[in-house]
């Protein structure tokens, strides 16, 4: 079999796996979306109030927090993974919780990775709202609550872009969740290609293990799904960026 044939066969088989709704692939995709989606949701709930506090309140430690957010935006995932691993292993300080190699541990890792990203981009969007807009709210009789709502409306596309950027980053991330999730799937008794059910195996971690196992078609199928998800998110983000 030539190299081209090999690739061609792999792609054909990958599409077969996707369109036959292969349960193994579906369950991996499901874990990816569940973990990254939950992490992004929780990160959003933290990041937006945090961005508002950093934009409008003058409290002690504000500059330090901004520096922390900026550093956090470029945090290496493997470092976060290692840190949480050390915290959660049975011998670690939170070992009693028994959470290492669980989806919750993965959500925690991605939450830490994504929160600074959403905070940083939202903060930039909120700060870009011109001061006269806020003063106009006040002169027209609005209170500080209305001023906050107005900045949210004015910065809404920027904030949505921030959330999508966070989600994209979470879905594409592999280092942290590989370490704290363990890439676990329950394989069937046969253990053959396209069988099993994911527990902590995601699109990215599965690609690493399927590739090293030599199951190229499954890897390609997973890669196609991953790229499609990220592409859709990017298109959506572009759409909102153009509107803001």
């Amino acid at each position: 079999m030539s190299g081209a044939d090999f690739l061609f066969q792999g792609i054909i088989r990958a599409f077969e796996l996707i369109f036959s709704l292969n349960p193994y692939i579906i369950s991996i995709t499901g874990v990816s979306i569940k973990v990254s989606g939950t992490a992004t949701l929780l990160a959003t709930l933290t990041a937006i109030p945090l961005a508002y506090a950093l934009a409008f309140l003058h409290f002690r430690g504000r500059q330090a927090l901004i520096a922390l957010v900026n550093t956090g935006m470029g945090l290496p995932p493997v470092f976060v993974g290692l840190f949480i691993f050390i915290m959660l292993v049975p011998a670690g300080p939170f070992g009693f919780a028994n959470k290492i190699f669980t989806p919750q541990a993965m959500i925690l890792a991605q939450y830490i990775l994504v929160t600074p990203i959403i905070t940083g981009i939202s903060l930039a969007a909120i700060k870009a709202v011109p001061k006269p807009i806020i003063e106009t709210v006040y002169t027209l009789g609005g209170s500080w609550k209305e001023a906050i709502i107005m900045t949210f409306c004015e910065a809404r596309f920027g904030i949505i872009t921030a959330i999508l950027a966070g989600l994209g980053r979470a879905l594409a991330e592999v280092g942290a969740i590989l370490i704290v999730g363990g890439n676990i799937a329950y394989t069937g008794s046969v253990g053959g290609i396209g069988e099993g059910e994911s527990y902590t195996r995601t699109l990215t971690t599965a690609i690493t293990s399927e590739t090293s196992k030599g199951d190229i078609s499954t890897s390609i199928a997973l890669g196609i799904i991953l790229i499609s998800l990220n592409l859709s998110i990017n298109l959506l983000a572009n759409f909102f960026q153009r509107r803001s």
Binding site: P132, I133, E135, V137, T139, L140, G141, G142, E146, E154
Partner: peptide, 27 residues
Amino acid sequence: RRMSMLFQTPVVFNASVFDNVAYGLKV
């Protein structure tokens, strides 16, 4: 709330003309 001011640089909320004008009434 009993006054109103127009700033030197025009300020427009990113919304319809109606929603802009209605703002002071809504609050």
